[in-house]
Design a protein around this nucleic acid. Structure first.
Lengths: 99, 99
DNA sequence: TTAATATATGAATAACCGTTCATATATTCA
DNA sequence: TGAATATATGAACGGTTATTCATATATTAA
């Protein structure tokens, strides 16, 4: 648990940027898919019924925010959740909307 | 802690909407101000160096998402954080950007 | 009731952002 | 090397949204 009393003004902008990444239904759906298991881009697109391009653009944003990682396997690139932080943040959000 | 395995597709949109509210630096700054103590609108505007109107518009959004509450005290309306959920979500976010 | 103070709100503008489309890059296999 | 497959990327379009400005509403004090 952070001591939010010591958070600096600068960090608040980073924090808003982070939440902004979670604040899109496409990215949330991608994250929830990856909660189940890792996926190559094409499978994600099919599972979410979206174009490969749209998914790829969003994965780039998620990667940049370090919410997902990836690795190449042959022709495919496999995406996965970066760490348990992501799971925790998602869970806190769900707690709020479900209460 | 939620069991995110059981989250339905519908809820994901609500979840994205929730995070979208956190994903704006003005609203984050308001929430952090309220983390310290409750404030009337005018004091918030002064503290954040923003117009009263801009703050009021954002407070409306925060209220609608049940992240803040308010009460009237004479001519002023005092805003405060709704509950500890908000604190937890903010903390999780800080943990992520600080690591 | 009238003036002053505090807050809310609607309309308009400007900036931001997600998707689409076309195309580029990278890997594998023949 | 060339074709096929998988993914990435840049530009453009359309929709969303935060701020500003003007004004409305609500409360208090005279």
């Amino acid at each position: 648990m952070s001591r939010y009393e010591t958070v600096k003004e600068d960090e608040l902008y980073d924090l808003a940027e982070l939440f902004k990444v979670f604040g899109d239904s496409t990215r949330i759906r991608i994250l929830f898919a990856l909660l189940e298991k890792e996926f190559p881009v094409g499978d994600l697109a099919q599972k979410l019924n979206m174009t490969q391009s749209a998914v790829s653009h969003q994965l780039k944003i998620l990667k940049h925010s370090k919410l997902v990682g990836n690795r190449r396997e042959g022709k495919s690139i496999i995406y996965f959740l970066a760490d348990d932080h992501v799971r925790t943040i998602l869970s806190m959000g769900i707690d709020h909307i479900e209460e």
